[in-house]
Amino acid sequence: MITKFSTIAATLCLASITSTQALADYPEKKIDLIVGYAAGGGTDVMARTVAPFLEQYLGDDATVVVKNMPGASGQIGVTATAQADPDGYTIGTYNLPGMMARTLDRDADYDADSFTYLANVVDDPNVIVTPKSSDIDSMEKLVAAAQERDGAITVSMSSLGGDDHFFLIRLSEETDAEYTIVPFSGSAPARSALMGGHVAMGIINLSEVVNFRDELNVLGIATNERSELLEGVPTFTEQGYDLVNGSLRGFIAPSGLPEEVEASLISAFEKTYEDPKFQEAMLKSGNPISLTTGDDFQALNAEQLELAERVWESSPWK
């Protein structure tokens, strides 16, 4: 019994020695940054923009290599990150509410406890848009039309179980009306169907509307304060609807990351975020940024999961 105990203690000691040794000069080898989407997507561009700054602020000639593992709307990549060794040499991109919604609607091999939450970098709020040709150019008219008959308003959006879907459910609760969901695969087709006038309204994200300002009516933006990227567009809160929602993109590592490693990664993300060159690069790629790190990020994740659970219980999307 005693020998057994001492063996365990010895192993623990040994393990902690080796791990502190490894930590002393983290990072001492290349860091894989797993992206769950193909090269060139929004999440991928974020990761590639962040990577050189991360290298700079981690110091010690750190190298960050972006690895694309596309498939199943990011689930393959995030599962790989969850199952990687928590040594700080594998980190990954993370999307909310998508990654939490997948734990509800599919048999996911991970859950909210599988990760160390590093930093959320992008907060891309939802917007409601209507075609330029449409008579519905304000929230009042939209709500009036929607309340007139259930399902009268057709809504194009990018997919089921995503931020746009959750936003619609909340809109439905707030305005006390039923909408007809038309889920396209991807936000660009959803936006085009809207521009062609094939549907009555669309729910997309701020970054997807910036380049189409003149072609669409934007009825509102789901943030607490107005956005610089979309001048003159009121928030929903201003208009009397309690709707704050969006798509979040950030970075996570497998759970059980040594504290020192976690701290140095988070500090590198914070410095990256403060860098004006980084902010400029993100703005150029149309990504509205907003930093949430560590425990706050974890709390944010819990909040998103709760929303997803609520939606899943009241109106499961499959």
Partner: peptide, 27 residues
């Protein structure tokens, strides 16, 4: 419009986006 006509065009769209070029009239 950001909607590719073929699988290859879809990949090329990624090639544009990686240079910060977002599709749309503003492009």
């Amino acid at each position: 419009l950001g909607i590719p006509g073929t699988a290859v065009a879809a990949v090329m769209l990624g090639g544009l986006m990686i240079h910060g070029l977002q599709p749309g009239p503003m492009l």
